[in-house]
């Protein structure tokens, strides 16, 4: 069953056009021109209950705009959204009770007072019964190691501490869906790992559906079974991460460390007939590029293994970063659709 259903969703922003020069500025005073820019342009997807879905794309691709429509903040220009059986912007107050939201760049905690005071307020706002609240708070506090910082004012927390508190705040009412907009932005690797593990655990234990946007593909690899990739308001990929690698990954690179020095032509000779590319690193080490779907890694290995003693072999897959970089590059060939409407 899908808990998030998005159908032909569009959001068009009216952007004021500033004409050039003094003359243009005067003209703007009396008659403004606007560009209509579609930040989200006709996207459709469903997310089933309990899934962790990564939502990625370059800056300005429309990720945050989508999240803001899904959480009831923005009103769509056209199209349908149904989340938890409700239309987010229509019954905002009722709807947001069932979701948790974290914006990595904005805080939902009160800046000047102890973290626990914000939690107490949220308890009342979401009408969480005292016992449930205690249980939930204890669990989260223990899991995220918050007990020492609960009484500190938010302004005195480090970013990592604040982020853990933000997560806690968004989960106190046990929401069935969690929206995370760049939850790991600016965090060190230890905190990132902690947060990922915590999210995974929450997802497994409570079947919390999670939709997260990120620029850190490690987040995606660690958490998501599915990615939706966005470019200039359009979905350009929707599917499993493994699929993405298989379709877009171009091959593997194998590093050999030999016991003795070697010469490149020797290696060329050994792999004759296979479409591979050798690169000499130094006297003892060599790299070979093996294109996907053409040559098997095992073929190459079997031919080299007899040649000389090998002290080390490393196999590198094209990593997700590279794949995504490739897709972003090729996907942004198109320019966004802009319609000039004057006299508005």
């Amino acid at each position: 069953m899908s808990v998030i259903q998005v159908n032909q969703l569009r959001k068009v922003f009216k952007v004021q056009k500033n004409r050039e020069g003094l003359k243009g500025a005067f003209q703007d005073l009396f008659k403004r021109q606007y560009n209509h820019v579609a930040a989200v342009d006709d996207i459709t997807f469903q997310i089933p209950k309990g899934e962790i879905c990564g939502y990625i794309g370059e800056n300005g691709a429309g990720k945050s705009t989508t999240i803001k429509m899904l959480t009831g903040i923005l009103v769509p220009t056209s199209g349908n959204i149904e989340v938890n059986g409700m239309v987010p912007y229509k019954e905002r107050e009722k709807f947001v009770r069932s979701i948790g939201v974290v914006f990595g760049q904005r805080s939902q905690l009160w800046w000047d007072i102890g973290v626990i005071e914000s939690f107490q307020l949220l308890k009342k706002v979401y009408r969480v019964p005292e016992n449930d609240f205690k249980m939930r708070l204890n669990e989260i506090v223990e899991r995220l190691q918050l007990s020492e910082i609960l009484n500190r004012p938010v302004r005195k927390l480090s970013l990592g501490q604040r982020m853990r508190c933000e997560l806690a705040a968004s989960l106190l009412h046990n929401p069935s869906i969690l929206f995370l907009d760049e939850p790991t932005i600016g965090l060190d690797i230890v905190v990132k790992t902690e947060i990922r593990e915590f999210l995974k655990e929450m997802n497994q234990k409570y079947e919390t559906t999670i939709l997260l946007t990120t620029h850190d593909l490690q987040d995606i690899e660690a958490l998501c079974s599915r990615v939706i990739m966005l470019d200039q308001g359009h979905i350009i990929y929707d599917g499993g991460l493994q699929n993405l690698k298989e379709n877009w990954g171009k091959g593997k690179e194998v590093h050999f460390q030999f016991q003795k020095s070697y010469k490149l032509p020797q290696l060329h000779e050994l792999t004759k007939g296979l479409n591979v590319k050798w690169v000499k690193e130094n006297e003892m080490t060599a790299k070979v590029w093996i294109p996907q779907n053409e040559v098997n890694v095992s073929d190459v290995l079997s031919r080299i293994v007899g040649f000389t003693d090998i002290s080390d072999i490393k196999i590198f897959e094209t990593n997700t970063d590279e794949i995504v970089r490739e897709i972003y590059k090729s996907g942004s060939a198109e320019k966004p659709k802009e319609v000039v409407v004057s006299n508005v």
Partner: peptide
């Protein structure tokens, strides 16, 4: 500064 967005994700007027 856009933080009104956070306020709107909370169930209160």
């Amino acid at each position: 500064d856009g933080s009104v967005a956070v306020q709107l994700t909370k169930p209160y007027p």
